[in-house]
Design a protein around this nucleic acid. Structure first.
Lengths: 193, 193
DNA sequence: GACACCTTACTGACCAGTAAGTAGAGTCGC
DNA sequence: GCGACTCTACTTACTGGTCAGTAAGGTGTC
């Protein structure tokens, strides 16, 4: 065992986990180090030890998201495009159940108030997610499992944008998310309407 | 002339106008009375005179939006559905040019940090916008100018969600908005692809 | 004794909100 | 046609709370 490494990793990870929940439900600007330290049973300065500036915490949060997302994409690379899309839908349901929105949604909404370092990696993160959505519908079209008008770029982008938007709308009207998911299936020719 | 009424209306309106710009670019939580009073050349307490609590300002902002939206809808009720949709696209372009996002986007993203009174009228506002999007595609389908799979509810909701999402994404990648607009036209059968 | 991982104790900035006072313009009695 | 009153639309001056961030010290482990 490596207790000191474990302790470091442990507290650091707990901070990130709590910050993530807070960011996805309240936004980056609307949570403070107090929210985290209070929940964690440590002092405010303990958070500053691991993440000197709040910007550092924000960047770490996004970078962790990017790594997680890359693993997520790689892990189900061999799945069929329609199945990948359904997994994406399930992920959105998970956010909805926790009354959260997706990271790209909150980050792009708050963009103008974020420190430059965070804007930078947000841009990379969002670009990766959009590229992934495009790739799904491109492969879906190539395999014949999906049929739609327009380009994979157009269709992938609208799927991504609609999912981000509907997750936000679902906070006000729970039916929005299901409605959009079903409509996407129809637009991709994945069901017999 | 009624000078006293003019003065009242004038400052009050200027406050609302500035608050609107600030909310659509930074979010409701990320602007302060200082931002407004500084720009306006008055003291902080002057804003509090017109809007005692920030919540009052927020509610007034949303209610004004609802009235404006109702007029907007009424004013172009006789236009053809495809033309109404194009007007909607133009409106989105206006937001994009100003580096803003749509009110429903910022309000639903920040929802959990908003005072209850604001959540209430946000819900009404978003419901009205969504209903309007549904109505456009419903009438478009009925007139034969739009053809699509699924229900008007599904299609209207996805159009609304996708526009909201793409306006946010467009802050990071300017092509997202145009891509989504074009894809919506295709999905509604409004162009010959 | 060096280092990781905290603590206590603090600073200065900003925030919404309030209380009390004031300038000016309109109104009314006379 | 002039003083007294009133109301609107502010001002100055302040409070208490929250915020990110820092400095210096302590404690346990290798």
């Amino acid at each position: 065992m490596k207790p000191e490494t474990d302790a470091r990793t442990d507290t650091r990870k707990k901070i990130l986990d709590l910050a993530e929940v807070l960011m996805l439900s309240r936004g980056f600007n609307a949570f403070s180090y107090q929210h985290i330290s209070g929940e964690l049973g440590v002092r405010n300065a303990a958070i500053h030890y691991h993440f000197p500036k709040k910007t550092d915490l924000g960047v770490a949060l996004i970078e962790r998201y990017r790594r997680r997302f890359a693993r997520y994409v790689a892990a189900q690379a061999e799945l069929s495009p329609p199945l990948q899309l359904e997994r994406y839908f399930t992920l959105a349901d998970t956010y909805y159940d926790k009354q959260q929105i997706c990271p790209s949604g909150i980050l792009s909404a708050e963009l103008h108030t974020l420190p430059p370092e965070m804007r930078q990696c947000t841009a990379s993160f969002v670009e990766e997610m959009r590229a992934w959505a495009i790739e799904i519908v491109r492969r879906g079209q190539a395999s014949g499992a999906m049929r739609y008008v327009g380009t994979p770029e157009g269709m992938g982008t609208i799927v991504f944008a609609a999912m981000q938007g509907s997750l936000q709308l679902a906070r006000l009207d729970g039916s929005a998310l299901d409605e959009v998911k079903q409509q996407i299936r129809l637009l991709l020719g994945m069901t017999q309407a």
